[in-house]
Amino acid sequence: MTATESLPETVDADAAPEPRAPSLPIRRLTNAAVPLGTAAVLLLIWQFGVRYFDVPTYIAPAPTDVGAVFLEELPLLMRNFWPTFTVSIVGFLAGNLAAILIAVTFVHSRVMERAFFPIAVFINTIPILAIAPILVLIFGPGLTAKVVIAGLICFFPTLVNMVRGLQSVNPQTLELARILSASKSEVFWKIRLPSSLPFLFSALKIAATTCVIGAIVSEWIGADVGLGALIIDSTFNYRSPLLYATVFLSSGLSVLLFASVTVAEKLVVRW
């Protein structure tokens, strides 16, 4: 027997990468406990700080005051929550849909991109607070103006990311498509659009939180319901605990939308 033959069998170097070990439940628990604990400590500092320095409630309410108002005024808060929820969702859908469609035309036509991209950049540079009154003047005090404001704030990040996503296709993949004599629409539906999804979802995560900002800003101008209107109302009436409760509810709405987009991303982008 020769030396080569008696060599031990070689390891399979071509084996698939091993799946990552599942994280221990203990580690997950501490991962959650650290930020939660920090938040709890900060709330305690706030609570005792306000009480110790005798800060008047209208300047800074203690967390317990806010919590009490939150429970007492829950019907009022929810009555104002749903309009803002609707404006945020409809604005989110409208703004992102417009951005996606315009990104598709930009990718297919250099002329369109050159003509309209600078305008999109210009609109994005106008602060949303400055453009909101103009839009209310144009569209009136109804739902339309609010949806446009919420949609507008989502629009630009999605446009930029979607254009990048649609252009992110590996050049070799496009060569492959050419060898397969693929049509433009086949390349779009089977290659470009799926390639853009990770980029789209990063933009949608931004939009999930900014659309709530847009909705609230839109309710500052001439609205009588909605979390934005409630913020203005409770501020001018020195109802600080209610103001704080409204602010927490607003951020709760953002978190809800953000979490929904994250779950959708996990389901769609599996690669």
Binding site: N170, Q172, T173, E175, L176, A177, I179, L180, S181, A182, S183, S185, E186, K190, I191, P194, L197, V269, R270, W271
Partner: peptide, 28 residues
């Protein structure tokens, strides 16, 4: 053509990637 990189579509399973040439070019 076999490229330097495998050039697979990352969202498609191995089987679906092998089937890609059967789906492309129909529109033409």
């Amino acid at each position: 053509f076999v490229f330097q990189d495998a050039t697979l579509l990352p969202w498609r399973s191995a089987l679906k990637n092998v089937e890609l040439p059967l789906e492309m070019g129909r529109k033409r």
